[in-house]
């Protein structure tokens, strides 16, 4: 595990001080902030919880998907483009160590970039100058859900990105795969959405809705963890396949 820790630390620090990460995180924060402000403005006077204003809109989740796709591109397509993937393949590092190290770095970058979302509620209270209780438990639950969903999207992104060798097609593929996961509901028979059993596991949009309300569903936790494990395993196999291609 020491190699995983080393790769994780290296990739995290390398990306953290890159202008591209700072820029994309700033754009994400600004866009989500604007979205929050718009939701507050549009739905003022209605009986809507703060959490739904913050995490409940479809636009917010599309922003998450876009940003995760951008951050995931740092994993493999850029390495292929610059030729450094060959260095990794020749290094005394196992494929799973590389995948896990890079995934942990990407996930932590996403967590770091979404932390400003926790500041919006206190900011709103300060702007309104009215004392009202901030629903911290719901906010942190929603953030935890967001990190879980973003983790799954990042794992999917890594697997998809390994198939493509240039950043732009990889970005489009990662974004499309994420959209597919989010809107899988639209592609499955109607009855599943009415009586969701295992179908719930693949419907990210439903999970996102629950987390946004501050509801932690164990089915979602299991689904996200299983999905992440599956796509990370797939990434390892795809990386091994590069030695055969």
């Amino acid at each position: 595990m020491s190699r995983v820790r080393m790769i994780w630390k290296r990739e995290f620090l390398r990306a953290l001080f890159q202008p591209s990460y700072a820029f994309s995180a700033a754009v994400f924060t600004a866009m989500t902030g604007l979205n929050f402000w718009k939701q507050v403005h549009d739905q003022s006077g209605q009986d809507v919880t703060l959490n739904l204003l913050l995490f409940g809109s479809l636009f917010f989740w599309v922003l998450v998907l876009l940003w995760v796709s951008v951050v995931t591109l740092r994993t493999f397509p850029e390495e292929v483009r610059s030729g450094t993937l060959e260095l990794w393949l020749a290094a005394p590092v196992r494929e799973w160590e590389l995948v896990l190290g890079k995934f942990a770095a990407v996930w932590l970058l996403i967590v770091l970039g979404t932390l400003p979302l926790a500041v919006y509620a206190p900011l709103l209270r300060w702007a309104e100058a009215q004392p009202w209780p901030i629903p911290w438990v719901e906010i942190w639950t929603a953030l935890a859900g967001l990190w879980g969903i973003a983790g799954l999207l990042a794992a999917v992104g890594m697997a998809v990105a390994l198939v493509f060798e240039t950043p732009l097609p990889a970005f489009l593929a990662v974004f499309s795969a994420g959209l597919l996961l989010f809107f899988a509901e639209s592609f499955v028979p109607f009855r599943w959405t009415v009586t969701p059993r295992w179908g719930y596991s693949v419907m990210l949009i439903q999970q996102a809705g629950d987390w946004s309300r501050g509801v932690a569903d164990t089915r979602s936790l299991v689904a996200l963890a299983t999905g992440m494990a599956f796509f990370l395993f797939l990434s390892v196999r795809l990386l091994q396949l590069k030695r055969l291609r």
């Binding site: 190699r3 080393m6 610059s82 030729g83 450094t84 060959e86 260095l87 020749a90 290094a91």
Partner: peptide, 29 residues
């Protein structure tokens, strides 16, 4: 057992030479 220099001598361009070598040494364990 091997030290490998690929055809285009790829490297992580944004890193300084010292950083690159220190990190590569860590990767080598």
């Amino acid at each position: 057992l091997i030290g490998y220099l690929p055809e285009t001598a790829p490297a992580w361009g944004e890193l300084r030479v010292r950083e690159q070598l220190m990190q590569w040494a860590a990767i080598q364990g």
